[in-house]
Design a binder for these strands. Structure first.
Lengths: 192, 192
DNA sequence: CGTTCAATTGAACAAGTGCTCAATTCGGTT
DNA sequence: AACCGAATTGAGCACTTGTTCAATTGAACG
């Protein structure tokens, strides 16, 4: 198998493993076992687990945000925001949120992950801010300070997801979606 | 040394270790070394590290919320919320936020921690909701749905803290405080 | 003094981790 | 056919983790 293909295959498998076991519990052996290859092969392509893990998270996060962008493209801003709120809760077992929050937490200890997550956070913010600006334009009434509003929305989603993912939490997916929509209404002149 | 004292001492030391090394990196050996005792002693009082860790987190979280309650007692709701916003950013190296977010993340894997964090989240929510209600009363103008607003504020703080703690993050403590205050203004009839 | 029992020790163990490296396979080139 | 270099192996190393348990201390009590 050629180098580039193997490399991609390893990253894909790493994403699967991380989604399934969680970032903290995923180990190199899980990846090599899932692939049916020797441990040396992994390290031939990725000098360290930290690097593979960071690349896997980067790719997963990128895909996720691209998926949301696609979900929102060409749609009126009002409904676009609605869709984002729905999407947040769409993932049945919240695997993607778990990956996202795990990575955010692990970024305290891992500089590579910190870079990855900073870039991802900025991407998210940019997308949300864009939607809020579009909403203002479509309405004539400008949303004052879309940047700040976007940060609040972004942070709110992360915070709600954190609470949601704690086992037995009082914060249900349904409630989280309601709260997020309330927030959008607050930030957009009470009419999203 | 008597049993009950030792027990408390172990929990205190565990809190120190966890604050310093982070929940994921803290190990039983760190605690026993810091105390200068044998490893068996720790397990004599706490059957497993998971139990000690959960109790340490519970105590730390309880203390933190008690501290905020004290900070806020007898103060007009408006300034109380101001103080909470300041407090959020007060901790220099964010050790307490790190503990809080670590625990929230780890709660996905550890049922004991999940219980602890659920209780803590509810406590936080109750306190914030109380302040928002008080604010409404002090003004005559009732805050509609203080419960929801409190959840949004709570989640926002967690989300902002998450972003803040990523190394090299664009989210500074200063910005986070501004955003939180904006949120309070939004939720309280634009006049906090 | 002798007895008792909780407090305490710390070497040892099993399980798990990331990573190394000499050895092997094998497709492509000369 | 001979060769080369990249792909691949996997046993093994060094390290860390939580936990166990037979052995020891030492204060309290009769």
């Amino acid at each position: 198998m050629s180098g580039e293909d193997r490399r991609k295959q390893i990253v894909e498998t790493a994403i699967d493993v991380i989604l399934q076991k969680g970032l903290a519990q995923a180990a190199t052996r899980d990846v090599t076992r899932a692939l049916g290859v020797g441990s040396g092969l992994l390290h031939h392509y990725f000098p360290s687990w930290a690097e593979l893990r960071a690349e896997a998270v980067r790719l997963a996060a990128t895909r996720e945000i691209e998926a949301v962008k696609a979900l929102v493209e060409g749609v009126p801003a009002c409904e676009a925001l609605e869709r984002v709120a729905d999407w947040m809760v769409d993932d049945e077992d919240m695997q993607h949120w778990r990956l996202w929050l795990n990575a955010l937490d692990e970024a305290h200890r891992d500089d590579l992950l910190a870079e990855v997550m900073n870039a991802a956070l900025l991407d998210w913010h940019r997308m949300i801010a864009g939607l809020l600006v579009r909403l203002g334009e479509e309405r004539g009434a400008t949303t004052s300070n879309a940047d700040d509003a976007a940060w609040r929305v972004t942070a709110l989603m992360d915070g709600l997801a954190s609470a949601m993912l704690v086992k037995g939490s009082a914060m249900t997916a349904r409630t989280a979606r309601v709260l997020l929509k309330q927030q959008l209404r607050l930030d957009c002149g009470r009419q999203v």
